[in-house]
Amino acid sequence: MSVIRAENLFYCYNKGTSFERCGVKDINLSIEKGQIIGVIGHTGSGKSTLAQLFNGLIKPDKGKVLLNDKNIWEDFADIRQVHFKVGLTFQYPEHQMFGETVYKDIAFGPINQGLSGQEVDIRVLEAMMFAKLGPELLNRSPFDLSGGEKRRVAIAGIIAMKPEVLILDEPTAGLDPVSKEGILNSICEYHRQTGNVIIFISHVMEDIARISDKVMVMDKGNLIMYDAPENIFSRREELNKMGLEVPQVTKIINKVHNKLDIKHKCVITVDGAVEDIIENMC
């Protein structure tokens, strides 16, 4: 069953002016329950526009976004519910924090959902657990935290609304490697426990390859590919033309296969590479 579906989706910026540019052009796709979807594309390819269309933040010029088979714009009064059901974190979400304390910042979403005080408390603590934030941070100001912690608070604020679909726009950009790893692990843990759809926009192909069930490739507003990561990363030349790379181990194993004239098999993870090498030993 599809959770989110796009039908003939169009969205253009600066409409009717000479600067008109379409961020998203004729997109058709369906995202099934329980999947992690990776989204890749060069800067300006329409990834973030698509995320905002899914969340109902912007209204498509043409076409439909269907959430659980219902057009999200069918009734304008329902769009607020869509914001809760499809949680979206922007790039550098810590720039948008405003709560005086970590608690207030994370509780903002659930309070606006109309939950009772006790329910809000539970949601906040649950979200903090997922984001690996200790309860001792509850009354601290989010602005006194480190960059990695701030980012986790911002993500916890969205998780606390228990969205059916969680969209993360470059959640690890600009962080040091240890914080990056922590955030990736939190995302995987959240997915394991809730089974909710996650849409993960990133420039880091190694991460995309590691956690995605399916990958979308965007270029100039078009959805060029939508397939399993092994199939996506086996089309290296096409990706390179769009200014995209493949994971480093894919390049390594490709080169090995070419030199030894072994039939091509696309390897996208380090563990996969180890198995491939052992298989080819004899």
């Binding site: 390049k251 390594i252 080169k255 030894l260 090498i277």
Partner: peptide, 19 residues
């Protein structure tokens, strides 16, 4: 460096010569 890494693996597999 991915190229150097690939070269090492190729060399290793060629030594095994059992494909």
């Amino acid at each position: 460096d991915e190229d150097k890494c690939a070269d090492m693996i190729v060399e290793f597999l060629e030594e095994k010569k059992c494909r």
